[in-house]
Design a protein around this nucleic acid. Sequence first.
DNA 1: CCGGATCCCCAGGGATACTG
DNA 2: CAGTATCCCTGGGGATCCGG
Lengths: 218, 218
Amino acid sequence: MRSYGQYCSIARALDLVGDRWTLLLVRELLLRGPSRYTDLKNGLPGVAANLLATRLRELEQMGLVRREDAPPPVATQVYELTEDGAALEPVLKALGLWGMRYMNEEHAGDAFQASWLAYVPAWFTNDADPAGPPAAIQLVADDEHAVIELGDGSVRARAGRTDHPDLTLVGPARAVLGVLLAKIDLQRARALGLTVKGRRDLLGRLRPAKGLSEAPRP
Amino acid sequence: MRSYGQYCSIARALDLVGDRWTLLLVRELLLRGPSRYTDLKNGLPGVAANLLATRLRELEQMGLVRREDAPPPVATQVYELTEDGAALEPVLKALGLWGMRYMNEEHAGDAFQASWLAYVPAWFTNDADPAGPPAAIQLVADDEHAVIELGDGSVRARAGRTDHPDLTLVGPARAVLGVLLAKIDLQRARALGLTVKGRRDLLGRLRPAKGLSEAPRP
DNA sequence: CCGGATCCCCAGGGATACTG
DNA sequence: CAGTATCCCTGGGGATCCGG
């Protein structure tokens, strides 16, 4: 990218990661951990192959990404974030938090992945009952599966499934996320196609982070 | 900008503000408040006139910027952030904080402005002695003037000058910012051309925010 | 199948000139 | 002062191809 030519830390940051696809690539590396080229390509639907290779090369040269040989089972290379690269997490959190206000409308044809389902509760909710017992919530949105695990005072989430969840939410992504962040109530979520099974009181333990509760928008 | 086509709040955010110059334009509106077109153009050295006009139109249509008639003295229009636009402040702070690690090197020819000098202490330092008496620090870097005001437990900063500062720092931007954030000591700063006059103990009241102190880099 | 490299084409951005 | 108009050029999208 052309430099903005400004001695300003915001401009400097954008000089490095302001290019198209760059921050989404960092998102993938942050959410998935060390990843192969093909996994990244799958995680970034729409990216051109050459562009992904170029970005990875640039990020490596800037010192934000490291290329390493994968551990024994696989014989290929993996890409992972360096310390400087991982330090972008607050940037992605801030962007993601701000962007939540535009998640009310689902645009037809938008891609969706389990890891994007998982980071929302993990990043943007707290446990309102930190001393409460462990619990697991199974999320299923557009056939993507994620699990929220409550306990030890934290809200953790990951892509995948769990046996014996205490609560299961199945429905369109918009409804699942809306309910998790208390932006829409169960009544409206059901109208959007949400199915709820299990201990719905657990939803009360998910307290939306500041900057979200502002006011549900039309 | 082309949409990324992903149902992910980070991608959504970048759909709106990921375009070139957009976040820097928001930075200007945030730091300067309601601004005229020409002020924005001056605050964004290097931007093409047509691009600035396009971005303002796009941001207005997205609901991030509002165009209004200026109060009586001037007969022109001003642009200002809406609530949604101003909510980008945490994003700019996160980006700016991350970018500080690349401010050690000044690139020849980089533009520099007083408002960019001011936001660094205002955003990235706290008063280590919140109950301490009011004090003012005059900053002069590359002929740009800014003032830090301590008192009432907060660190405020603005472009401009003050009479009777308690401390005055004059020198290249890199040295002034480095000293403010405790990334370089006075000894080294002086070697870089910094001049210090007044109560240098006041520097001890500026406590760098988390995410900065990590370790000065070469 | 993985990890790219190559090629073509178009939209978005840069520089400058011009206008109400 | 507040933009438009124009031209040029680069960066990115999309498809295909290629070596391991």
